[in-house]
Amino acid sequence: MRILNRTAGRLSRHRRGPLAGLAVLLTGLLLTGGLYAVFTPATASQAKTDDALIAEGRALFLVGCSSCHGLNGEGIQTDREGVNYGPSLVGVGAAAVDFQVGTGRMPMSTPGQQAPRKDVLYTEDEIAAMAAFVASLGPGPAIPSPEQYSLDGLSEEERQEAIVRGGQIFLTNCTACHNFNGSGGAMPEGGYAPSLKGVEERHIYQAMLTGPQAMDVFSDGNLSPEEKRDVIAYLKSIEEAPEYGGFGLGGLGPVSEGIFAWVLGVGSLVGFAIWIAAHSTRSKKDKVEA
């Protein structure tokens, strides 16, 4: 007890020293900073701040996108009412940029009815920067995380359930344009709904989330994230299913298969029949009557 009293007395004497306040302040700052670094490692170690990312994205946007979408992503109106040269990007969100640029649809080579998928022109970092810039223009859907669209975490049983439910949702909401087999189909005025075969899970999810080009939006209030994942599970399951009948002919339906059977199938049989009956050798000799 005596010793404790003596230590307290010594501390108490130091507390009144001229450097005590500074020491306490330094200790406090170090502790706060250290704890902050321990508990939020991701943001603390990120090389670029959000502002720098947006600035980089803006620079890329001004070069690659602004000729159609306007210097501030406000879109460019044409003379015809209601028709945009490039639509406004305010509020389309980072997910739209990640989808459009990540699948090569943007930048388009020419404005038109259809934005076809082509080679991706930007690196992942550049796409992230542009996505950050467009997201800063107005609130919109963010880039989904892998947990939302990935099927890896599902057990075999959960996956089967997801495929069944996803199939029903797909057949109700998607087949009108994208075909029952996800092979895509024709749309008015020269457009088409693209094939969904071989499309990355992330891009299928983002397409539902943002409604690219003429596609309807299936926002989280419309189809929940789990339902979107179920649709992806169904699409992947029909992609992996073996074609028991041999050539699938693109899975486009009875019209294309009927044309194939009638024109190529029956046509080649008729051609073959004509060919084998076409030639007939004749002799110049007369028959020797026996």
């Binding site: 309807d216 939006v217 299936f218 926002s219 209030g221 419309n222």
Partner: peptide
Amino acid sequence: VRDVVGTPIKVSDLEIGDLVN
């Protein structure tokens, strides 16, 4: 209600451009 799942719909659930069967 939404087809397949049968859940009711609030106005705030839907974004502009949404289509629901």
